[in-house]
């Protein structure tokens, strides 16, 4: 179950975010995305989640292609974005039961998932009454609820205290130890032994003839 990113290219609003991005991640390894704002960390994660279409290139996870088998690829992905995806009107327990139903996880996993991020005390409280950090933890507890091999984490530890951040890091570590792959945009150390760090924004290749995208055609100069 290795992840290989092959020559990925993304153009947004006429700007090449990255091009020629290639990297291989072995099972049990983590890929840490670093780099300044606008380096394309979130963009890369959304492409790997199949939410954004790359302008060129592909990615394969255990032989499944992102571009030609998007649905199968997505079935292996667990994505956590900037947003917590929680509803103020539901309780913590209801919220996780809902995601368990949608992701076809067992209801028995809901309790341990709540434990995993130390939310047991709040299980029957409406999300409305939770603080920002507690909501974040609730969002992240999906990591303990849903069993999928490829994790895509976008700044998972923002607004978390040290103890909760350590719990998230432990979850990510155990995912790697069980042979999964974790791709995370994060500034804290997840303490995963085998980790590669890349800056997506540093991948900038000259466009080759066959990799030319529609936008390039509009933008290329010789007609004017």
């Amino acid at each position: 179950m290795s992840l290989s990113i092959d020559n990925l290219r993304c153009v947004r609003a006429g700007r090449t975010v990255f091009s020629g991005l290639s990297v291989d991640v072995q099972p049990g390894e983590a890929l840490i995305l670093a780099g300044p704002n606008g380096a394309g960390k979130s963009t890369l994660l959304r492409i790997l989640a199949g939410l954004l279409r790359p302008d060129a290139g592909d990615a394969q996870f255990s032989g499944v292609s992102l571009t030609s088998e998007r649905v199968e690829f997505q079935e292996r992905v667990l994505y956590t974005g900037h947003l917590d995806a929680v509803k103020p009107a539901l309780t913590v327990h209801e919220m996780l039961t809902f995601w368990a139903d949608v992701y076809d996880a067992h209801h028995d996993a809901v309790g341990p998932a709540i434990e995993a991020l130390a939310l047991a005390r709040l299980a029957d409280h409406p999300v409305r009454t939770l603080s920002a950090g507690q909501r974040r933890r609730l969002g992240l507890s999906r990591l303990a609820l849903i069993d999928r091999p490829l994790w895509l984490l976008d700044e998972p530890t923002v607004s978390l205290d040290a103890d909760s951040a350590a719990r998230v890091a432990a979850l990510a570590r155990s995912r790697c130890e069980s042979g999964g792959v974790v791709v995370a945009a994060t500034h804290i150390d997840l303490a995963i032994p085998a980790a590669k760090t890349i800056d997506p924004g540093s991948f900038k290749l000259e466009a080759t003839e066959d990799g030319v995208t529609a936008d390039d055609l509009v933008l290329s100069g010789d007609a004017w």
């Binding site: 006429g14 700007r15 509009v218 933008l219 004017w224």
Partner: peptide, 16 residues
């Protein structure tokens, strides 16, 4: 439309 896209691209490139 094509020209105005071209102008936007030039502006973007210049801003970078």
């Amino acid at each position: 439309e094509i020209r105005s896209r071209r102008i936007r691209a030039i502006r973007l490139a210049a801003a970078r």
